[in-house]
C-alpha cells in the first residue's frame, strides 16, 4: 500500500480529470458531429482502475457515472450502472490487460466502451429513447483511438506528480 499522504494529490488529479471529462461530455457540438464525441469518462474509469486498482473501485465508478447522468440529463443510473460494470471487468482483468501492447489494449477498450454504450442505451430505453447502431459504435471507435494518447498523457502526469 502506498503512503496515505499520497492520497490527496491522487484524488485531486482524479477529480480534475473527471471534471474535464464532464465538460467534454456536454461540450456543444453540431448535431451532425455529436456521434463523434468520445466517452472520456468511461476511458478515464478504465484508465484509473487499471493503473491504481487499490484506490479506484466500483464505488467511485458508480458516483462518477451518477454525476455524469445528472449533468448530461440521462436517465439516472444509466452511466452509473455501465461504469460500475466496466470498473468490475477492469478490476478482475487488470493484471492481464496491463501486459498487453498499447494497440491491443485499444481493442480491449473498444469492447469495453461498446459495452458501456449498450448498457446506457438499454437504460435509456426504459424512458423510450432508442439509439442508432452508428451512435453505439462510433463513440466506441473514437474512444479506442484516443486510448494511446490518453494513456501517454496520464502516464506522464502520474510520473511527474507521483500519483499512485
Amino acid at each position: 500500500m502506498p503512503a496515505a499522504s499520497r492520497l490527496w494529490p491522487y484524488l485531486t488529479a482524479v477529480l480534475i480529470s473527471f471534471v474535464i471529462a464532464m465538460l467534454v461530455a456536454v461540450w456543444p457540438l453540431p448535431a451532425k458531429f455529436a456521434v463523434f464525441r468520445p466517452e472520456l469518462a468511461c476511458l478515464l474509469v478504465i484508465y484509473w482502475v487499471m493503473s491504481s486498482p487499490h484506490r479506484m473501485g466500483m464505488r467511485y465508478a458508480w458516483l462518477i457515472g451518477l454525476s455524469q447522468d445528472l449533468i448530461e440529463g440521462y436517465v439516472w443510473g444509466a452511466h452509473a450502472m455501465s461504469l460500475t460494470i466496466i470498473a468490475y471487468i477492469c478490476l478482475v482483468s487488470y493484471q492481464r490487460i496491463r501486459s498487453y501492447s498499447i494497440w491491443h489494449q485499444a481493442i480491449w477498450v473498444f469492447v469495453l466502451v461498446g459495452l458501456h454504450q449498450v448498457v446506457c442505451n438499454w437504460v435509456q430505453g426504459l424512458a423510450g429513447y432508442t439509439m442508432s447502431l452508428v451512435s453505439l459504435l462510433v463513440p466506441a471507435v473514437i474512444s479506442a483511438l484516443l486510448w494511446p494518447l490518453l494513456t501517454l498523457i496520464l502516464w506522464r502526469l502520474r510520473r511527474a506528480y507521483l500519483l499512485i
Partner: peptide, 25 residues
C-alpha cells in the same frame, strides 16, 4: 452497485420521487 443503479433508473423513469432533486440537478 449495478442493482442500485437499476433501482435508481426504475425510480427515475416510473415514479416522481426524484422530482425535487431533479430540479437541483
Amino acid at each position: 452497485m449495478a442493482t442500485i443503479s437499476l433501482i435508481v433508473a426504475f425510480i427515475y423513469v416510473y415514479s416522481d420521487w426524484f422530482d425535487p432533486v431533479k430540479d437541483i440537478a
